[in-house]
Amino acid sequence: MTLRHLLSLALLVLALVFPAPTGWALEGDPVSAYASGEWSVVEYLQCDGQAPVLNASCREIDWNAHNTAAGTINAHPGLPEYVVFDIRADTCDTLKVVGRMQGLSTSGGTAHTLLATMQSGSTVTSFTWTPITHRFTRFNVTTAGTLAGSCTDFEVVARAFYRRVR
């Protein structure tokens, strides 16, 4: 048995002992959806993870691609009417994460600041993006909070509102 075989066997054992967290939501995943009154609402995770990194961004959301899953509750005709972004969780205990919401017309392209400061536990925890100005959005970290492992969960949710035809 070669070293390569041993490594493969070790990986297999690890995979069996620690199965993949398939049930966990990732950035960009829809986490909630319902229709109510005038609106059909789909909530996505813009950010989800542990200690955010300074100057890094959470994964982009393509608001066009998120509306094309035919046959699912996410199927909507084009961009939403508007989007509300909320910092839903920030477990950094000594220094809160600060970031800005950015809009991009192309993936990885020039980022334009939609809101300069978002921070949990303040009046700027939430941002209403209306009307829609870009196809892509991302959250860019400007103050990373406590990086020494104390941030166990940082979440920014994006709630897309689609007008219902009743």
């Binding site: 909530e43 909320d86 839903r88 969780a89 949990s120 925890t125 939430s126």
Partner: peptide, 12 residues
């Protein structure tokens, strides 16, 4: 305040 979930993180 607005909340995304019952007893969740509020926005003022």
């Amino acid at each position: 305040r607005g909340l995304t979930a019952p007893l969740g993180a509020p926005s003022v």
